[in-house]
Design a protein around this nucleic acid. Structure first.
Lengths: 190, 190
DNA sequence: ATAACAAACTAACAAGTGTTAGTTGAAAGA
DNA sequence: TCTTTCAACTAACACTTGTTAGTTTGTTAT
């Protein structure tokens, strides 16, 4: 593995700590100590504690936004779109669970234009999801249940996958995806 | 409404702030200001910031623990047990969404014996849930899917209901319960 | 009227916060 | 070899944190 530059190391390390204790409870001295340097040295690489949070959260949020846009535009069935959305969440969870924890728990500590930008992306994401569900109901692929309940139920599961992944052994990425799709789409009752 | 005693007012007020910004980001001065008094005055009613967190989190955790124990012991079908669990989460969400947010996001800021106690309750809760699912699979009421996936999927939705309840209008408690049961148990596909 | 109490206050503290300034030693490029 | 750059350092800052001590004030019980 190529040695990451120091800024990336700091961000990854911070993300791990943020996941464990939350943004506010982690001090610059905590981050420094985990890297075995002094807090002041961090400022050779990053502008502020805020910047670390922004770099962690915004990048992931943009990836979600970009990908769901592509999914909406793809010419496939509703079910296939939903499976792609499940795949998207699993992908990112496996690749970067710490950043995902951050995005879920610490986004409210963003400020100013980044906060606005984040909220906008989040709303757009949910709106795209809502449109997938609605057109699935219209085409009789999905039951005529209140779309908000469906969106909430699926998203709350997918968004918190990071809490669970890693603790449970014996899942390959594809077996996880298959199990998850089955449960979320077809339910659990015989 | 009977006037709550001051300690309860403080705890409710703190819970609301903790929900918005998280335990660590809320200062005693924030709580005091929201009650229009000075921070030092809080200490006439509570011992410490920690005590506030403990009082919020432990009470709710005990209610979950107690109720799921009763559900496990009840002589009903697996499906009815699961519906009771859904009902439990909806009940508490409606009654005290702030405390639930706290329990979900700030439990890791408990310390010493309360932290241990909380983690034990959480594990017990999941173990009870797991047993309901397993016996449902054994009796052919529930599909033979990996129980961990089912537990995770249902619990992640139920645990984060507080995020959603209040934002969405037009749900009575019972219509919410019916919709939720349908989606979680039978899925969304036609 | 007096005593007792509840619940607010002011003032202060020690420890911890993010951050800046200026310095140093080692590595890399000319 | 000389010089620039990088990434660490020490020292300090202004401010915020949870908390304590001691005091005041209004209400209630004797």
């Amino acid at each position: 593995m190529k040695p990451l530059d120091r800024k990336t190391e700091i961000i990854n390390c911070a993300a791990k700590l943020f996941k464990e204790k939350g943004y506010s409870a982690v001090t610059m001295r905590d981050i420094a100590q985990a890297l075995d340097i002094k807090a002041a040295s961090l400022y050779n690489h990053i502008k502020s504690k805020q910047e670390i949070l922004v770099l962690i959260v915004i990048e992931i949020a943009e990836e979600f936004t970009k990908t769901i846009n592509e999914i909406v535009l793809s010419k496939t069935t509703t079910i296939q779109k939903l499976e792609k959305v499940i795949q998207l969440h699993i992908d990112i969870t496996i690749r970067n669970p710490e950043a995902l924890a951050c995005l879920n728990n610490d986004w409210m500590h963003l400020t100013d234009k980044e906060l606005t930008y984040f909220i906008k992306m989040r709303e757009d994401y949910e709106e795209n999801f809502r449109n997938i569900i609605k057109s699935g109901i219209a085409s009789n692929e999905i039951k005529n249940i209140n779309p908000e309940v469906i969106i909430f139920s699926m998203l709350s599961t997918l968004r918190t996958l990071y809490l669970w992944y890693g603790k449970k052994k014996g899942f390959t990425e594809s077996s996880l995806k298959n199990n998850m799709s089955e449960v979320l789409l077809n339910g659990i009752i015989m």
